[in-house]
């Protein structure tokens, strides 16, 4: 299965990644090669088979709805590329 460059651009947008135009062609070819190995799955009859999301078919464990975390804001924000007054800074979003 071969992907078109426009499809790769659309996937990149979904993935939150920008593709360097110089690498576009090579990336398209490599992604197409990966998708090609998926084709053999289509020949298999999976009617009546339940999808398996987890080994051991585990279900999510529930816990009491109470506060368990303590405040680590300063420690965590010390790792941020840009933070000020307890806020993470990003480029302006609203004019």
């Amino acid at each position: 299965m071969s992907l078109q460059k426009t499809e790769v651009d659309a996937i990149a947008r979904l993935a939150g990644i920008s593709v360097d135009p110089a690498e576009g062609e090579q990336l398209t070819a490599k992604l197409s090669n990966v998708l090609a190995i998926f084709q053999q799955m289509q020949a298999i009859d999976t009617n009546g088979i339940e999808p398996m999301a987890h080994p051991l078919d585990q279900v999510q464990r529930l816990r009491e709805d109470c506060i368990t975390e303590t405040n680590h804001r300063e420690a965590y924000q010390s790792l941020a590329p840009k933070a000020e007054n307890g806020l993470y800074l990003v480029p302006q979003v609203i004019d």
């Binding site: 996937i11 992604l31 998926f38 799955m41 999976t46 999808p51």
Partner: peptide, 27 residues
């Protein structure tokens, strides 16, 4: 590449053909 493959197989129109199919094969 893997993030992009993941975004692709989860995207509208491909979910059943890839993701759900793969989960059945997993079983």
């Amino acid at each position: 590449r893997r993030i992009m493959v993941g975004a692709y197989v989860l995207s509208a129109g491909y979910y059943d053909a890839y993701y759900l199919k793969a989960q059945k094969l997993r079983r």
